[in-house]
C-alpha cells in the first residue's frame, strides 16, 4: 500500500516539476513582450512611420525607410523563393523518379539547418562579389534561400494530403496529368500552400544576420534594387548597439513594429488553414 502511495506522490511531483518547466519556458515570453510593449509603445509615434532616421546627435526621426525596405526585401524574396519552392514541392509529391526526390528532400532539410549567417556569406559570394556592391537583390536572394526549404517541404506535405481519388477523378475524365495537377490538385491544396508560404515569410521577416553584408542597410529612401537597402532588423541592431539613448528608444519601437509584423503574418497563416481545412480533408 505504502509503495503505491509513494509512487502516486512521485507521479504528482513529476507533474508539478514538468508544469514548472513549461512555466519557465513561457516566462521569457511574458518578460520580452512586456518590455516590448512598455518600451516600444512609449517610443512609437507617427514620425516613426513617416520619417527618415535623423543624423547622429539629433533627436527624433523614424524608420520609415527601414519598414519599406523590409517590405521590398520580403517581396523580392517571395518572388524568387515561392515559385521555385512550390514547384519543387510539387516535384517531391508527384514525381516517380527514384533517387532524386530523396536527395532533394534530404538537402532541403539540410538547408533548413544551415545557419542564416552562412546563407548570407553564400549570397555575398553569389551576388555581391560579382556586382561589386551591396544591394537589395542580394538581400532578397539570401532571404529566398532561407525560405526555399520551408516552402518546398510544406508544399510537398499539402499536395500529398490531396486525396488520390480527386486525382483519379481528373484522370478518368481524360484530362492530361499536368492539367490535373495544375487545375485540380494545386487548387485543392491551396490553403495549405499559402499557409506554408506565409510561415516562410514570417520566418525571414525578422532575419538580420544574412542581411548584414548583402542588403547592408541604408539611411535613406529606397534607391533601386541594385543599391544597398534599409531593413527593420538591421536598423534595430545598429541602434541597439549604438551609444545613444534616443536610438535605443527607437530600437524598441522598431522591435515592436517588427514583432507585430511577424505575428500578424503568422496569425494570418493560421487563419487561412483554419477556414479551409474542410477543403482538404
Amino acid at each position: 500500500m505504502t509503495t503505491t502511495r509513494w509512487r502516486q506522490r512521485v507521479s504528482s511531483l513529476m507533474a508539478i516539476l514538468t508544469a514548472a518547466a513549461a512555466g519557465s519556458v513561457i516566462l521569457p515570453l511574458v518578460l520580452i513582450f512586456g518590455f516590448l510593449l512598455w518600451q516600444g509603445a512609449a517610443a512609437i509615434n507617427v514620425d516613426f512611420f513617416t520619417h527618415l532616421p535623423k543624423p547622429v546627435g539629433e533627436v527624433g526621426g523614424g524608420m520609415a525607410n527601414a519598414i519599406i525596405g523590409t517590405l521590398i526585401l520580403l517581396g523580392l524574396a517571395s518572388l524568387l523563393g515561392l515559385p521555385i519552392g512550390i514547384l519543387g514541392g510539387v516535384y517531391l509529391a508527384e514525381s516517380r523518379d527514384r533517387r532524386l526526390p530523396w536527395i532533394v528532400r534530404f538537402l532541403a532539410d539540410v538547408l533548413n539547418g544551415v545557419p542564416s549567417i552562412v546563407i548570407g556569406i553564400f549570397a555575398y559570394t553569389l551576388v555581391v562579389l560579382p556586382m561589386r556592391r551591396f544591394s537589395a537583390v542580394a538581400g532578397g536572394v539570401a532571404l529566398a534561400v532561407i525560405m526555399l526549404p520551408i516552402v518546398v517541404r510544406t508544399t510537398e506535405e499539402m499536395v500529398r494530403l490531396v486525396p488520390a481519388s480527386l486525382r483519379e477523378a481528373g484522370l478518368a475524365l481524360g484530362v492530361p496529368e499536368w492539367k490535373v495537377v495544375l487545375r485540380v490538385v494545386l487548387p485543392t491544396a491551396r490553403a495549405g500552400i499559402v499557409t506554408g508560404a506565409m510561415v516562410a515569410v514570417a520566418r525571414v521577416a525578422g532575419e538580420t544576420a544574412p542581411l548584414l553584408f548583402t542588403a547592408f542597410g541604408n539611411r535613406f529612401w529606397h534607391q533601386g534594387l541594385d543599391q544597398p537597402i534599409a531593413a527593420l532588423p538591421l536598423q534595430i541592431f545598429a541602434y541597439a548597439i549604438a551609444p545613444y539613448d534616443d536610438w535605443h528608444r527607437q530600437a524598441w519601437a522598431g522591435a515592436l513594429v517588427l514583432i507585430v509584423l511577424v505575428l500578424a503574418v503568422s496569425l494570418m497563416a493560421r487563419l487561412v488553414t483554419r477556414g479551409r481545412v474542410g477543403a482538404v480533408r
Binding site: 486525396p163 481519388s165 480527386l166 483519379e168 477523378a169 481528373g170 484522370l171 478518368a172 475524365l173 481524360g174 484530362v175 492530361p176 485540380v184 487548387p187 485543392t188 491551396r190 474542410g278 477543403a279 482538404v280
Partner: peptide
C-alpha cells in the same frame, strides 16, 4: 491513355467531387 479515358469514363466508389 488520355484519349482512352476521354471515351471511357469512370465513376468511383466514394463520391469525389472537386472540393474547390
Amino acid at each position: 491513355p488520355v484519349e482512352v479515358r476521354r471515351r471511357i469514363g469512370m465513376v468511383f466508389q466514394k463520391p469525389n467531387p472537386f472540393p474547390t
